[in-house]
């Protein structure tokens, strides 16, 4: 799976815009299991996470609404993007 992670890193750093550029990078990548390549081309982060063997549940920190406190919040991963 490290190939897919490296490819994601390369895609993140690449000055490409739009699907065509990203697809070209994926297509030009070296040997990669077909399922991973498909997940990348399908833009399917959840499939990629499953294939990667990453944690099924990820939780994020949020700031507490009450001043002077900070409470991590938890959330089982359901989407593909988080922010903080």
């Amino acid at each position: 799976m490290s190939d897919a992670i490296r490819l994601l890193e390369r895609l993140g750093a690449a000055p490409v815009r739009g699907a065509a550029g990203a697809d070209a990078i994926v297509a030009a990548a070296g040997e990669m299991p077909a399922a991973q390549r498909k997940a990348l081309l399908d833009r399917d982060p959840d499939a990629l996470r499953t294939l990667a063997g990453g944690r099924r549940s990820m939780r994020c920190l949020i700031i507490s609404p009450e001043p002077g406190q900070t409470a991590p919040c938890d959330r089982h991963r359901a989407g593909s993007s988080w922010q903080g």
């Binding site: 992670i5 982060p45 944690r55 990820m58 994020c60 593909s80």
Partner: peptide
């Protein structure tokens, strides 16, 4: 927040410990 990012970090250092 993303398991792929956690895996990415593991490629940068041999001792990455998740706080999850």
């Amino acid at each position: 927040s993303d398991p792929l990012v956690e895996l990415w970090l593991q490629q940068m250092n041999t001792d990455v410990r998740s706080l999850q």
